[in-house]
Measured scan of single mutants.
Amino acid sequence: TLFEALYDYEARTEDDLSFHKGEKFQILNSSEGDWWEVRSLTTGETGYIPSPYLA
């Protein structure tokens, strides 16, 4: 399933992933509550992002 970022986000820890509004992601793991592990389709990087920032 693909999701798109609604807002920009700046990583706060080394496990987080910074991203920009409009960036698209593949969800790798959504079992961690509000923090999902994703792969950016723009950069190929993986990390955790806050799920409320996605649509």
Rank of each mutant, 00 (worst) to 15 (best):
D8F: 04
I49A: 09
P50S: 05
F19D: 09
Y9F: 06
T43N: 04
A55L: 10
E37H: 14
G22S: 02
P52D: 14
F19Y: 07
L2M: 08
S31V: 09
D15Q: 12
D15P: 05
D15K: 14
S30W: 11
L54A: 08
Y53A: 12
W35L: 08
S51G: 09
W36K: 00
E32G: 13
L54W: 09
S18L: 04
G44W: 03
Y53F: 11
T46K: 11
A55D: 08
Y9M: 03
D8S: 08
D34K: 12
R39W: 04
L17E: 01
D16F: 14
I49Q: 00
H20C: 12
P50C: 14
V38L: 01
A11G: 10
F19A: 06
R12V: 12
L41S: 02
L6Y: 07
S18Q: 03
N29H: 11
S51L: 04
T43A: 01
I27W: 03
H20W: 07
L2F: 13
D15F: 15
D8K: 03
I49K: 15
R12F: 07
L41C: 11
Y53W: 09
L54E: 03
G44A: 01
T42A: 12
S31K: 08
S30R: 12
Y48N: 07
E23H: 06
Y9A: 01
E37K: 14
I49L: 03
A55R: 08
Q26S: 05
T46L: 13
L28W: 01
K24F: 11
D16N: 10
S18M: 04
K24Y: 11
N29V: 06
Y9N: 02
L54M: 08
H20A: 10
E32Q: 13
T46I: 11
E45S: 08
F19W: 02
E4K: 04
E37M: 14
N29A: 10
P52G: 15
E45V: 09
A5W: 05
Q26H: 08
E4Q: 09
Y53N: 07
G47D: 00
S30M: 13
A5L: 07
T42I: 08
K21V: 07
A5M: 05
Y7E: 05
G33S: 10
Y9P: 00
D8I: 04
V38N: 00
L41K: 01
E10N: 09
T13L: 10
W36F: 04
L28F: 04
Y9T: 01
S30H: 08
Y48S: 03
R12A: 10
K21F: 12
L17C: 06
T46N: 03
T43P: 00
K24I: 14
A55S: 13
Y53P: 03
Y53G: 05
G47T: 12
V38D: 01
T46M: 06
T13M: 09
E4G: 14
E14P: 12
L41Y: 04
F25P: 15
A11F: 03
A55Q: 12
Y53H: 07
E23S: 03
P50T: 04
D16Q: 15
G33L: 08
D15M: 13
W35Y: 10
A5C: 07
Y9I: 03
Y9V: 02
A5D: 15
T13Q: 14
P50I: 04
D16I: 12
D34T: 09
Y48A: 02
W36Q: 00
K24L: 15
E4R: 04
N29C: 10
E14V: 10
L2H: 06
A11H: 04
N29F: 05
P52E: 15
D34F: 14
R12T: 12
L54V: 08
L41M: 11
T46E: 06
L41V: 08
H20F: 12
E10P: 03
K24G: 02
T46V: 13
I27N: 00
P50A: 06
D34H: 09
E23I: 02
S40E: 01
D16V: 14
D34W: 13
G22M: 15
D8M: 03
G22Y: 08
D16W: 12
K24P: 03
T46H: 07
F25V: 00
E14D: 11
G33D: 09
S51F: 11
G22Q: 01
N29T: 06
H20G: 05
G22P: 02
Y48L: 11
T13Y: 15
R12Q: 13
L17I: 11
G33N: 10
S40A: 07
A55E: 08
I27E: 10
S31G: 10
L6R: 07
D15R: 15
E32T: 11
F25M: 02
E37R: 11
S18C: 06
L6H: 05
T43Y: 01
S31C: 11
T46S: 06
F19P: 01
F3V: 06
S51C: 10
E4L: 10
T1S: 10
P50D: 01
A11S: 13
G44L: 12
D15G: 14
Y48Q: 05
Y48M: 11
R12E: 08
V38H: 00
N29K: 05
E37Q: 13
F3W: 15
W35P: 02
R12P: 10
F3G: 05
E14Y: 09
S31R: 10
R12I: 13
P52Y: 15
S30N: 11
P52V: 15
L2A: 04
T46C: 07
G47M: 07
N29P: 01
L2W: 12
S51E: 02
T43K: 01
D16A: 15
S51H: 06
R12H: 09
P50V: 03
T1G: 09
D34Y: 15
L2Y: 13
G33W: 10
L2C: 11
E45G: 06
T46D: 07
T42R: 14
Q26I: 15
S18P: 04
S51Y: 09
R39F: 06
E37Y: 15
G44I: 15
V38S: 00
I27H: 01
S18G: 05
Y48R: 13
E10L: 10
L2P: 05
